[in-house]
């Protein structure tokens, strides 16, 4: 047996295995990707909300992409409280000015960043939200202050279409 012959066999063997692996991966991928959000789910990307009836100190909860969105019309005290917090006191430092461009309106996903429960309004040690599942406390800007959640409640992309209508998404 010459050395050359063995090498030729080795090459064929490796090449066949490699092509086979690529082929198998190409077949497996559709099976995996079919579980990702489908076109009909993706199509429900934005929603418009009439906020004219909302008075200061109240929260409206609407459903967007299957998740609740909190629209809070904040009182002056709540805004002041959120804005005077020092950055070093925050677990996930974010300025209230960046979270609520228009200080009166706080729009965010009403989903606890720990394990996805819906936090309760006007509860907790920081007068904001409290998650009943595992005890995360959020302040009047929806920022995490105490408990297992790692991040502030997420602010989605939104805009005021007119004075009374918010478009989320």
């Amino acid at each position: 047996m010459s050395e050359k012959k063995t090498k030729r066999r080795d090459f064929l063997f490796t090449a066949t295995t490699a092509v086979g692996a690529v082929g198998a991966a190409a077949v497996v991928w559709p099976m995996i990707d079919q579980m990702n959000p489908d076109a009909s789910v993706k199509a429900l990307a934005s929603t418009e909300v009439d906020v004219s009836s909302l008075t200061p100190g109240n929260t409206l909860t609407v459903l967007w992409r299957g998740k609740p969105v909190f629209i809070r019309r904040r009182t002056q005290e709540e805004i002041d409280e959120a804005r005077k917090v020092k950055m070093e006191d925050l677990i996930h430092p974010e300025k209230d000015e960046d979270r609520a461009k228009n200080p009166e309106w706080l729009v965010m996903l009403g989903v606890c960043t720990h394990l996805g429960c819906v936090p309760l309004n006007d509860k907790g040690d920081y007068n904001g939200w409290f998650c009943p599942c595992h005890g995360s406390h959020y302040d009047t800007s929806g920022r995490i202050r105490k408990g297992p959640a790692p991040w502030n409640m997420e602010v989605p992309k939104y805009e005021f279409v007119d004075a009374n209508t918010i478009k989320i998404g």
Binding site: N36, D38, G66, L115
Partner: peptide
């Protein structure tokens, strides 16, 4: 919701895995 969200604790790919498990942006029909 809570149990599938456990996977979101995985750094970098966690959120993608959760969306994949749900087949959407929340627990729903899929």
């Amino acid at each position: 919701t809570v149990i599938t969200n456990l996977f979101s604790a995985i750094p970098l790919v966690g959120e993608g895995i959760v969306t994949w498990l749900w087949g959407g942006y929340s627990v729903d029909n899929p």
